[in-house]
Amino acid sequence: MDWMQIIAALALVMFIVVLFPRARHMIKNSPKGTSSDWMSFVIPIAAVVLFVMLLIKLV
């Protein structure tokens, strides 16, 4: 294991530690979505997945 991997691992740990309280705050304060809200999220994300698959075919 080289020093770059160790630094990358330490940086990731730092980001996780910093982001964890923010994530907890967002979970507590985010409004709940209805099934229609979730559908309006799933459809564009599915389109993105299909688009990435198209890009893979093109490369």
């Binding site: 990358a8 996780i16 967002m26 985010s30 979505g33 809200d37």
Partner: peptide
């Protein structure tokens, strides 16, 4: 899309944990 906030942050944290595991 404000209801996505918590879901996305948890997903992002899980990805960071997976990336950390994959370093090893």
């Amino acid at each position: 899309f404000s209801f996505l906030g918590g879901f996305l942050m948890v997903g992002f944290l899980l990805v960071l944990l997976a990336a950390l595991a994959n370093i090893f």
